[in-house]
Design a protein around this nucleic acid. Structure first.
Length: 284
DNA sequence: ATAGGCGCCTGCTGGC
DNA sequence: TGCCAGCAGGCGCCTA
């Protein structure tokens, strides 16, 4: 579900509800496994601890506790992290419930498909290891222009796959890759190394632009996503290409087409985003 | 090095 | 009406 704008919206919603609050208890609901195991043993660094900060890095949500530990959450495709009144019925597929010291409020983690995870990370050093293992690339808003051009030059992969590679740029998922490529007028199957410097610049600006717009609309709700206080997003009504197969291109009215690139649906305008020329057979 | 395929899961939609 | 294939915001693993 959530790409950078959705995760950012959740963090912005949660920050005023969580920062300064103490977690008075944590309950594991149900016994279904998540993508990574939830570490029961570490409750000591969590229970009765205060939340100092709420941050986002790529698609990860990071809550810093006064024990020095970090509660780190990834929402996968269908994860939700919300603050709800304790009296509200638990929605189906809830996996973790954290009672807050503010009476009658709970932080809840639910995830239908269980591609998400919530883990406790012991301290700052362990968090660094965690980040190093994930090898997250830079945030899309502070891509260095020269480094960005260089990272495209360095690979023969198709540009769409590069946008989805979290080690190149963190936080972009399928929706915003599609929208950024549309905005930059680049075909998803262009080889990254064939993208010209000017086009690379345009793409970098388009990524930031599309993500900023989406954050302003509180992200996109297709099916499951809601923000930290339960509100849906609105950016799905602003899509120019994603999910708009056969609908007119907002720029030229050519029907939007769809190809599968790297196993993911990629919507594009056949006129505004011309297909790359077929590579000529190499001379001996 | 990279593309493509699968697998992890559940739920919803569209076509028959 | 009912069934079933196909598809979905992510990511990691395997093979060729």
């Amino acid at each position: 579900m959530p790409e950078l704008p959705e995760v950012e919206t959740i963090v912005r919603d949660l920050r005023p509800l969580l920062v300064g609050r103490r977690l008075s208890s944590v309950t594991r609901v149900g016994s279904l496994e998540l993508r990574r195991p939830w570490l029961e043993d570490w409750h000591g660094s969590l229970v009765e601890r205060c939340i100092l900060e709420a941050h986002r890095r790529g698609k990860w949500i990071l809550l810093r506790l006064d024990s020095g530990a970090h509660l780190v959450v990834h929402l996968g495709m269908t994860g939700r992290l919300t603050v709800k009144p304790a009296g509200d019925p638990l929605e189906p597929h809830t996996h973790l419930v954290f009672d807050l010291d503010e009476p009658g409020r709970q932080l809840r983690f639910s995830d239908i498909r269980r591609f998400g995870c919530a883990v406790l990370i012991r301290d700052d050093a362990a968090l660094e290891t965690f980040h190093r293992d994930n090898a997250l690339g830079p945030e899309p808003f502070d891509l260095d222009p020269a480094a960005w051009r260089a990272s495209l030059k360095a690979t023969t992969r198709v540009i769409k796959a590069v946008l989805l590679d979290q080690t190149v740029v963190a936080g972009v998922g399928n929706i915003y890759a599609v929208e950024a490529l549309f905005q930059a007028q680049l075909h998803p199957s262009r080889r990254a190394c064939d993208v010209k410097p000017k086009e690379a610049d345009r793409l970098r600006e388009s990524i930031a632009h599309v993500l900023t717009e989406a954050i302003e609309h509180r992200g996109s709700t297709i099916r499951n996503y809601v923000g930290g206080s339960g509100l849906s997003g609105g950016y799905q009504d602003e899509f120019r290409a994603y999910g708009r197969t056969d609908l007119p291109c907002p720029r030229c009215e050519t029907p939007i087409a769809m190809v599968r690139v790297g196993g993911r649906s990629s919507h594009f305008c056949p006129k505004c985003q011309p297909a790359p020329h077929k590579a000529r057979p190499k001379r001996p």
